[in-house]
Every structure is written in structure tokens, then in C-alpha cells.
Design a protein around this nucleic acid. Structure first.
Lengths: 178, 178
DNA sequence: GGCTAATCGATAGTGTTACTATCGATCAAG
DNA sequence: CTTGATCGATAGTAACACTATCGATTAGCC
């Protein structure tokens, strides 16, 4: 179902101007030419825009970082492992060491005491995630799942954490003292 | 040890101009007046700047959100529970539902299958964190720990997750196929 | 006492990011 | 044959987080 830019804009929920911008920035393939002012977009463009919105919105990636992730997904030479690495690099803002250093500076060095628990939980989830990834055999789907698992997984985990904290804090700090 | 703005700038690592900006924006108390062009800052200002940098840097909060968190920390009327809630609100960008909806749109509705595992891990950590919080009795320290636990904990968890994923992906995708 | 350098608060300017709007040329569709 | 959509190029905008400059004043050193 080939469509023109305005319909693509409607379906994807981003403006035509923004689609042009994404094409300019190399985030999105241009449509297929069919005359001087006729270019047609298809399902694949729609899907890509949705992926982009997930990276930029939920993932909070800057456009430049999203571009690199997209490039990794599109590169048929890349292994799943290296695509996943690229996705991780894109979302990495801080290392464990940096976080602990800041905790130290703030006078709460005992944040370190929780590190092992965090690591254990992370290991457990990572195993699960890698299995989730591998549910498909198609290489393109697999690499896409790698970035989705990284980006959406991050968002999902922090959202779940907030829910759990809210719960834990409620039982701890409202039923008893303080 | 009362100091002037330039020394505070040096010690904290942010410029004098930025300190003035933070004061203007209500993120930082002004120093104590001691004459027309004499204002002195102390340890508490230094500590506050470090907290700010953690919120703005590691936490990635916009200045406006950091302001609200700071206000909650400073409000003696607030319970720990509500301060923690404020910190969570500030970092919340997405809910579990939103993330799952996006996964659906992208053609990976089975991300849902991992939700329970994420929730279980989150619950476990949340219990730990709340205990960690409660290691102090001082109310001010307690509320500060609430925001530090939320913000730095988020950063620490995602960093640990990346480490674990890297590991898991390496053993799964480089030793065998693909 | 005189001079230099620092400080004050106020206001204006800057660089970056992610779009958004406008343009003239061209063409599809009714 | 007219109307309206499209094209790519270029310029403009809004928000954000600072950063720089200003004239008035004064601390601190010789």
C-alpha cells in the first residue's frame, strides 16, 4: 500500500515536515520516486517511524544516537551481539563506577551495599531477555528485537521499579512511624 | 568555612555564573549577606550543588523538575513517603502500560511475557531499598536518601543491567550460531 | 589613601536540539 | 484548466541550560 507523505504523516502521527526532517537526517529512507513531485512511502516507512519514535521518545535518545542505532540495525554485516552493543552504547549515560562515585560525594557511600543485589537481579533478567530475543530466527527481526529489548526493556524495568517502590514505601512509611 | 562565590565555584566544579543561575531559578539558597557585594556560602551550599548535579546530570532531570524535588526535600511538612513520591514523579517518563503499547505497535507484543519477571525483580529490590533508606533516623538525611535512592538507584540499576546484558549476549551470540 | 580585582544583581546573549514554516517549481486529478 | 498536493531547499522557531556583560560598589593589599 504505497502512500504519499501526508497519509504517512497521518498514520504515523508525526507531521509531514518531521518526516522530511527525518529523511534529511538519515533516520529514514526517502520514498520511491515516481515523478518530479511524486514519492511513495510504504509499510516499511511506517514501521521505521514507529521504531524511531520509540527510540526518541521512550528511549530518550538524541537524534544523532538514534541514527547510529538505526544504522546498526540496517547493516547486514553486523552480528546481533554487536547491534545490541550499539543500542546499549546509545542509552548508556553512566557507568556503575560513576554512580557510586557520586553517591560517595553525596555522603552515601553505602549505596555500594546494594550493588550486588542489583547485579544479581540484572543477571537474572538479562538471561531472560536474551532468550526472549532468540524467539525469532529472522535476522532482521532479531536485531530489531535487540534494540527494542534494550530500549523498551529499560523503560519497562524502571517503570516496574517505580511501581514497586511506591508499594514498598507505602507499607513501610505510612503504616508505622514517620 | 564561609567562602565567596568563586571558591564555591571551584570546589563544586560549576561556574560562578551557573551558581547565580541556580539561585535565580530557586534551586539553591542565596548566600548570607554581609555587605553590598559580599555574600558568603558554606558547606550546605556545596552539598546542595552536588545534589543538584546528581539530579540534573545522572538523573537527567530538567531544571524545572529538579526544582520540585528540591522543594520537597526542603519542606519539613512532607513525609518521607511523599518526598519519595515526588522524586519518582520527577523521573517518571513512562508507565508500564505505555511501554507495552509501544511494543505492541512495533509488532513485539510478547514483551508482555517478561513483565512478571521485571515486576518480581523490582519488588525484591524495592524492599531492599526501603530498608537501605531506613538506616538513618535523621529526617533530613532520610528524605535526601529517598531522592538519592530513587535517582541514583535508577542509574545504578540500568548500568548493572547493561553489564549483565553484555555478558549474556556474549555467551549466547558469540559462542554459538549467528 | 589609592588602586586593583572581586563581588553584587539584573539583563541580555549564546549554542544546541528538534523540529516547523515557507518557498517557488511542478504536476496529479477532477 | 484550475486547484491543491507535492517536491527539496532553506530559513525560522521554541525550549532549554547556561554564559557573558554591565555599572555600582567594596574588600583587600601596598
Amino acid at each position: 500500500m504505497p502512500v504519499r507523505i501526508n497519509e504517512l504523516a497521518e498514520r504515523s502521527g508525526v507531521s509531514a515536515a518531521t518526516i522530511k526532517y527525518y529523511v534529511r537526517e538519515g533516520l529514514l529512507r526517502g520514498g520511491d520516486r515516481a515523478g518530479y513531485n511524486q514519492v511513495s512511502y510504504d509499510e516499511s516507512h511506517l514501521h521505521r517511524i514507529r521504531l524511531l519514535r520509540a527510540l526518541l521518545g521512550l528511549g530518550g535518545l538524541p537524534v544523532a544516537a538514534a541514527k547510529e542505532v538505526i544504522a546498526a540495525v540496517d547493516d547486514p554485516e553486523r552480528t546481533v551481539h554487536s547491534t545490541l552493543g550499539e543500542a546499549q552504547r546509545a542509552v548508556s549515560k553512566t557507568s556503575v563506577e560513576q554512580v557510586l562515585a557520586v553517591a560517595d560525594e553525596l555522603g552515601h557511600p553505602d549505596l555500594l551495599d546494594m550493588l550486588e543485589a542489583y547485579r544479581a537481579a540484572a543477571r537474572q533478567l538479562a538471561t531472560l531477555e536474551v532468550n526472549w530475543l532468540g524467539r525469532t530466527d529472522d535476522r532482521d527481526t532479531l536485531t530489531e528485537r535487540a534494540v527494542i529489548g534494550t530500549i523498551l526493556g529499560d523503560a519497562l524495568l524502571t517503570a516496574a521499579r517505580r511501581e514497586a517502590q511506591k508499594q514498598a514505601s507505602a507499607t513501610r512509611f505510612t503504616t508505622r512511624n514517620r
